[in-house]
Design a protein around this nucleic acid. Structure first.
Lengths: 336, 336
DNA sequence: CTGAAAGCGCTAACAA
DNA sequence: TTGTTAGCGCTTTCAG
């Protein structure tokens, strides 16, 4: 068994120097067509595959960027990754993804792994990483940006939307429709600062409304199933809520599903509003009113920010992405 | 500005040799606790970050695997990637993803890029890559597997489900319910062999039924919008179809949505069956009857197959994943 | 347990 | 246009 051919083997077979072979790969214009052909022939004869590692050690670049995401099994993160990857590709960069399950320890371990394989930059979700994670990033001075939120005072450059605005957009919509007793369905917030920010915004609004607004909170796993269970709990101990505000469309979908199967109607019995705007949300039954979050665009902007950072060494600014309410049929004026 | 510290710098500062520093990183047990501490101190003093490239050039491994997917903005591929990534991680491997948009030229270009950054293995979708792609893989002898179908005579090891069985599962279900005039909604099949296989299976069934079964085919883009347009065309020139068989749940969702908005009822006016079983399909209205395809599991198995291939050099066998019909409420017996 | 030294495969001056 | 050569940063024998 013979090992992989290297530059020397190719050079020898083509009767040229290694430098020439290298030039054929990198600056073919500077090699005479004649020798170039000989070299290329030798390459394919020997099934030559250049070593990425050897190249990287010389150029100092791996052309690789890492994204640390809670999961890919969620349309929002997947579409983000899709936009990110597409745009990175335009800069000649490749995307390596690692999922963390929103576990800070895993997140740190994955970040380590990403540097071990040569990632030049990192993208993380949210801005509330562990102190260890922060120390890690600072120690290795690896360009890192945070996505899914926009927060001027975050420790990393953030590229995302204002989660407070987002939830208030949904809330205002419901209030304008006359709803003031609202069930809030949200995911676990232990390690999720987007959820925390949204909850906080709601609590402030409740206080500011001075009694004119009341919420009942239901925490559930981030899944259709979770939303469904939350709705079950809501009805098991039914209050006088007339609307449901879910922090994600997936949860909203679960809520609606359970409401239907318990014989209730949306929006007649409950107005339901989500957040995210999944591609499928417009074709739910009824079409879901939700806050549109431009996640694909977020991926593209993150790609550009990172590509430039790697290029010119200048840390990017925070970037806020516009959000808007997508009013559809799952919400109507309160029945009086 | 001083450049990144390397092994020599660390060795010098700790008063040891580079070999010792290397051991601290790779086989810490073989270094006395005392010197180990000195070395670690030196490392953090100098903010030492080992060079992945240098390591890779010596070990000959990059611990990186590439997946070439049509897109990530589709729950099925995203969940596949999620399972793949999670399982690869267990083997210490990282996943780099590249999207191809189902364009063979892009696919080849991306494969090149993946080798350029050092991917040790490649995962592709389907088994009908271009001749150039095939030549590329063979020339570089990079371990490559194909997913989303199971096909014994494919040029690559395939890990997936039998698409013929899958579509027949859906068809049999409809036939058992008494439907024999069926609208088939499918995506473009130019570069998609899974779609071609399914169409072929249907055509054979039609012939075999000898007149007792008729299909009308509607091609549409792989999106909710596409499904919706297909339904519009179906109704614009309405035949006597009583059921719709869609090749993906996304298309089925679009069909149902349009049917509803045109005042028709599912399943009363049309039974609708999909294929995929997205997490959201069970909470559509009505819950969608569909063929369950275990895509996450497929990702896990692909990861294992590749990890072993890289480990022992033995090309894996084809692997068939089980599929089953998920009968829900969108399909009922034909109204007579 | 530790060190010296020989590469790994390639790029990039610098020469010719 | 082409060749020579000195590394890049690390791992890994082989000695001690």
């Amino acid at each position: 068994m013979k090992k992989r051919a290297n530059l020397r083997d190719v050079a020898q077979r083509a009767g040229v120097s290694v430098a020439t072979v290298s030039r054929v790969m990198n600056t073919p214009a500077r090699v005479s067509p004649d020798t170039r052909n000989r070299v290329e022939a030798a390459m394919s004869d020997l099934r030559f595959t250049p070593s990425a590692a050897a190249r990287a050690i010389n150029t100092g670049r791996t052309q690789t960027v890492a994204a640390l995401l809670p999961t890919l099994a969620n349309s929002t993160f997947a579409r983000f990754a899709d936009g990110l990857e597409a745009r990175l590709g335009a800069f000649g960069l490749s995307l390596v993804v690692a999922t963390t399950g929103e576990d800070p320890e895993v997140e740190l371990a994955r970040a380590r792994q990403m540097l071990n394989i040569g990632a030049e930059a990192i993208i993380v979700t949210g801005a509330s990483q562990s102190a260890d994670f922060r120390a890690f990033v600072e120690r290795h001075m690896v360009p890192t940006v945070s996505v899914s939120l926009f927060q001027q005072d975050a420790w990393l450059p953030t590229i995302g939307y204002d989660n407070q605005k987002a939830v208030l957009l949904a809330l205002d919509h419901l209030m304008q429709l006359g709803h003031h007793k609202i069930a809030v369905v949200h995911g676990p917030h232990g390690h999720n600062d987007r959820t925390r920010i949204r909850l906080e915004a709601l609590k402030q609004a409740e206080v500011a409304a001075n009694g004119a607004l009341t919420f009942r909170y239901f925490e559930a796993p981030f899944s259709v199933q979770g939303g469904s269970e939350a709705a079950a709990r809501l009805l098991a101990q039914r209050g006088d809520e007339t609307a449901v505000l879910a922090f994600t469309d997936v949860l909203a979908g679960g809520v609606i599903h359970r409401l239907h199967s318990l014989g209730l109607k949306v929006p007649q019995d409950f107005s339901v509003v989500g957040m995210e705007d999944l591609p499928s949300s417009a074709s739910l039954y009824p079409p879901l009113t939700t806050v549109h979050l431009p996640v694909r665009r977020m991926g593209e902007q993150a790609a550009e920010a990172l590509a430039q950072w790697l290029d010119n060494g200048i840390r990017p600014d925070h970037q806020e992405l516009p959000i808007e309410l997508a009013a559809r049929s799952s919400s109507v004026a309160r029945q009086t």
